[in-house]
Simulated assay, not measured.
Amino acid sequence: MAPQYKIPESVLVVIYTPGLDVLLIERTDAPGFWQSVTGSKDTISESFRETAIREVREETGIDALAPGHILRDWNLENVYEIYPQWLHRYAPGVHLNTEHLLGLRIPQRREVSLSPREHRAQVWLPYREAALRCFSPSNAEAVLMLPRFA
Results as ranks from 00 to 15, higher is better:
residue 1 M to G: 14
residue 1 M to Y: 11
residue 2 A to L: 15
residue 2 A to H: 15
residue 3 P to E: 12
residue 3 P to K: 13
residue 5 Y to V: 05
residue 5 Y to F: 12
residue 7 I to S: 08
residue 7 I to D: 07
residue 8 P to K: 10
residue 12 L to Y: 00
residue 14 V to S: 01
residue 15 I to Y: 04
residue 16 Y to T: 09
residue 17 T to M: 03
residue 18 P to E: 04
residue 19 G to E: 10
residue 20 L to E: 06
residue 20 L to H: 05
residue 21 D to L: 00
residue 22 V to E: 04
residue 23 L to G: 01
residue 23 L to D: 02
residue 24 L to W: 01
residue 28 T to F: 00
residue 29 D to R: 05
residue 29 D to G: 00
residue 30 A to T: 01
residue 33 F to Y: 09
residue 35 Q to K: 07
residue 35 Q to Y: 00
residue 38 T to S: 06
residue 39 G to D: 04
residue 39 G to P: 02
residue 40 S to A: 11
residue 40 S to N: 13
residue 40 S to L: 00
residue 41 K to P: 01
residue 43 T to K: 07
residue 44 I to M: 12
residue 46 E to S: 06
residue 48 F to L: 04
residue 48 F to R: 06
residue 50 E to L: 03
residue 50 E to I: 02
residue 51 T to A: 13
residue 53 I to V: 15
residue 53 I to H: 01
residue 54 R to P: 02
residue 54 R to M: 05
residue 56 V to H: 04
residue 57 R to Y: 13
residue 59 E to R: 08
residue 61 G to A: 05
residue 63 D to P: 06
residue 63 D to R: 10
residue 64 A to I: 11
residue 66 A to E: 14
residue 69 H to V: 13
residue 71 L to Q: 11
residue 75 N to E: 12
residue 76 L to P: 04
residue 77 E to R: 12
residue 78 N to H: 13
residue 78 N to C: 09
residue 79 V to E: 10
residue 79 V to T: 12
residue 80 Y to K: 14
residue 80 Y to E: 14
residue 82 I to A: 04
residue 84 P to A: 10
residue 88 H to M: 08
residue 89 R to M: 14
residue 93 G to T: 05
residue 98 T to N: 03
residue 101 L to E: 08
residue 103 G to P: 10
residue 104 L to A: 14
residue 105 R to L: 09
residue 106 I to K: 07
residue 107 P to Y: 07
residue 107 P to M: 08
residue 108 Q to N: 10
residue 110 R to D: 06
residue 110 R to N: 08
residue 111 E to C: 01
residue 112 V to T: 12
residue 113 S to P: 02
residue 114 L to E: 14
residue 117 R to S: 08
residue 117 R to M: 06
residue 119 H to Q: 09
residue 121 A to C: 03
residue 121 A to G: 03
residue 121 A to D: 07
residue 123 V to F: 00
residue 123 V to S: 01
residue 124 W to M: 03
residue 125 L to K: 03
residue 125 L to G: 03
residue 127 Y to V: 06
residue 128 R to N: 08
residue 131 A to W: 08
residue 132 L to I: 01
residue 132 L to E: 13
residue 133 R to K: 15
residue 134 C to I: 04
residue 135 F to K: 14
residue 135 F to E: 11
residue 135 F to P: 04
residue 135 F to D: 09
residue 136 S to E: 15
residue 137 P to L: 12
residue 138 S to V: 07
residue 140 A to E: 11
residue 140 A to G: 14
residue 142 A to K: 09
residue 145 M to N: 09
residue 145 M to Q: 11
residue 147 P to A: 13
residue 148 R to Y: 05
